[in-house]
Design a protein around this nucleic acid. Sequence first.
DNA 1: GGCCCACTTTGATCTGAATCAACTTTGGAT
DNA 2: ATCCAAAGTTGATTCAGATCAAAGTGGGCC
Lengths: 255, 255
Amino acid sequence: MNRGFFDLDQDTMAIPSFSRIKCSDCPIRHRAVCARCDTDELETLEGMKSYRSYAAGEVILWRGEPLNFVASLVAGVASLSKTMEDGRTQMVGLLLPSDFIGRPGRKLIEFDVTATTDVTLCCFDRKPFEKLVDETPHVAQRLMELALDELDAARDWMLLLGRKSAREKIATFIDMLVRRSQGTEPLANTVIRLPMTRDQIANYLGLTLETVSRQFSALKKEGVVDFTDRRQFEIKDIVALQDATGDDSDGGVLS
Amino acid sequence: MNRGFFDLDQDTMAIPSFSRIKCSDCPIRHRAVCARCDTDELETLEGMKSYRSYAAGEVILWRGEPLNFVASLVAGVASLSKTMEDGRTQMVGLLLPSDFIGRPGRKLIEFDVTATTDVTLCCFDRKPFEKLVDETPHVAQRLMELALDELDAARDWMLLLGRKSAREKIATFIDMLVRRSQGTEPLANTVIRLPMTRDQIANYLGLTLETVSRQFSALKKEGVVDFTDRRQFEIKDIVALQDATGDDSDGGVLS
DNA sequence: GGCCCACTTTGATCTGAATCAACTTTGGAT
DNA sequence: ATCCAAAGTTGATTCAGATCAAAGTGGGCC
């Protein structure tokens, strides 16, 4: 069964069952840090790994905390965020299944990691994992690719934060959810679940929750999207949505 | 002679001389991608490298252009930027000496790379460099570290773009210049050269050039900084400056 | 030396999003 | 079923920074 990235949080029941999952049956097998491991290496990982679960809202790691384990996100959504002394906060990363937590050679993390929905991690103790990285070039390579993907995402996000209007930010956010869910869903259905509250979306986009709410309302009134529920909506006019993102209309196609 | 990062642009004469520099005498020897290479490996690099220079304002690479070479920035300052259809632009990276251009496994770049000041690159053709990376674990490791450093910088920047006020942005920017120059300057002198125009600073910080100018004027009037020239100023009150950044007062020190 | 153009500063006005403030909806606990 | 807290909506007002406009300033070039 082919679940959307954002669906698992609804059904916490499924999570404990991961403790019995074999690497070869793992849903993120082909995208995570272990993507290019062969059968032998998978065997080694099998012996090293352990699963941990966190309920929506729980903090997985605090900023500055020593990082004793690294992990792949198996199910759910987690966020990386920075908070200023006076409480202003900004999300600086959104982790989806197959994303990696922790970095080789760094003992501390520079941001809080929080479970946005219920989350399951596949954890490895730091030391043995680092040994593995040193000895297994394709794990190191995959880690590099994941880091570069994050860097690209961070840069698109910087453009959004620095230059886009509230409307463009919201449209870009929805468009991202559409693209992400099409990776798993078989394209057809345009019903999208929001993995976060209005407040979390605001922290993601550098807005306030009131502005987020108003922009959603505006897009609804214009018939671009239709909310079936406050956490679930349907895309009515994908062209209008993409126009509203402010991004290039041709997705990088050479002209 | 120990030059500041931002000084070389003044004195273009020095740049062509890099073509004769040996890796072992290279100013970025210990920080660049080659940082951990041994004498033999340096020998190999010596044979592969070539220098290129760009005048301030020249575009080094256009977005979407095939990336036939990778490079280390030897001298000067370059910027990575994204531009929207209507002309709004946002810098998404600032490259200083020892920073790396190009990524293993990616043929295209997602942003423009522009020489902010006069710039000298140490270039390697793509193919042989990738072969070297595959065969030399510590080059791959160093590349990973550089990518992770960029990612950390991008995340701090996201907090700045999403949540900081114009005043905080400017103070953070100046504070960054101070920290960077202290890496090379022997700490004492507090005269800082701006490597960019007001317009470029605005694109860096997600502001307009008028707002940048006004905030500089305000900090001058308050006696926090003193401009000797429009490209050069002196820090008069570092404590007030750091207060104005909005960042934690204790630089991550455990309390 | 003087002219020109790119850069910068400063002022006046406008506006999008923040802030402040009710009020409504929803879903879970009892 | 009812209550309650958390989440969301909507409206009124304010304000930081954008935009529009007009002068300064200085470095490079003939």
